[in-house]
């Protein structure tokens, strides 16, 4: 029993570097959310969502006035479907006697960074270690989110017009390292940019979608991301060994 509690503490400690990295990020996203018009309690739910790119999707749609919840959920689902893959490989890394509630608690607060760190451990991992490992980053994120939503009011007006670029700065910092590591990822980024401008340049697409009573921004974004990924997997499928190379550094 005592040994198992130590497992949680060991995990918690191992997760602290991730927690420190998350804190300013969630703070920046929360500031953007409050500036976009969310109130304090909305911003807290926003933090519990616990996904930088998902929150980016929300803010992007929200600023464009998208009102259909399904559009947000669908894009979130597509963007984070990789967790299914994480979970599949994770379930093979866990000790086979891990209780279901521990699997669930870990799963709910799992992230890319936690996954990568967990996979670097040798041998099977206990549920308590994994819960600890996932818990400290989650705390860091929530702390940053709450702080961010509280301090937004203190930001001087003169800086506000440029804060919109903050979130895009985060996204750029997430994409560039993997594009730098893998030519194929770089290729997919270029394809997405081209597609995005093509869709933007054809006004009839936007007009048709608007005439259905739907905000075109969300649809074009999904179309763009999904078709770019499909085109790339078709032209340049990723080999098994490249897969682990790309995943490790993310």
């Amino acid at each position: 029993m005592i040994e198992k509690n130590n497992d949680f503490r060991r995990g918690f400690k191992d997760g602290i570097p991730i927690a420190l990295a998350y804190l300013p990020i969630s703070m920046a996203i929360a500031v953007d959310a409050v500036l976009a018009g969310l109130n304090f309690s909305m911003a807290q739910i926003f933090g519990i969502m616990y996904t930088g790119s998902g929150q980016g999707i929300f803010l992007n749609y929200f600023k464009k006035g998208e009102t259909i919840a399904l559009m947000y959920v669908f894009m979130l689902f597509i963007a984070n479907f990789r967790y299914v893959i994480f979970s599949i490989s994770m379930s093979q890394k866990m000790k086979s006697d891990t209780p279901t509630w521990q699997k669930l608690l870990f799963g709910v607060i799992n992230t890319d960074e936690v996954y990568v760190l967990a996979m670097q451990n040798q041998g099977a991992l206990s549920g308590k270690y994994l819960m600890g490992l996932a818990f400290s980053p989650f705390l860091g994120y929530i702390l940053g989110n709450t702080t961010g939503s509280l301090v937004t009011g203190l930001i001087p007006d003169i800086v506000k017009p440029v804060l919109g670029i903050m979130l895009y700065g985060l996204f750029i910092a997430m994409v560039i390292p993997s594009a730098k590591k893998s030519r194929k990822i770089l290729f997919s980024v270029v394809i997405t940019i081209i597609l995005s401008y093509i869709l933007e340049a054809i006004p009839i697409i936007g007009k048709t979608i608007s005439s259905w009573g739907i905000n075109p921004a969300g649809i074009t974004m999904i179309t763009c991301a999904v078709s770019a990924a499909a085109i790339c997997s078709w032209i340049a499928p990723i080999e098994e060994k490249e897969l682990s190379d790309i995943k490790e550094e993310e």
Binding site: I78, I85, P161, V162, M174, S196, S233
Partner: peptide
């Protein structure tokens, strides 16, 4: 194909979020 697709999707989603909106994110 599915494996490749799910490897590509995080970067294509992020890129689709950035472009072209980023260029109208400031004054």
């Amino acid at each position: 194909f599915l494996k490749s697709f799910f490897t590509y999707i995080p970067s294509t989603v992020l890129t689709a979020l950035i472009v072209p909106e980023v260029f109208s994110s400031t004054s």
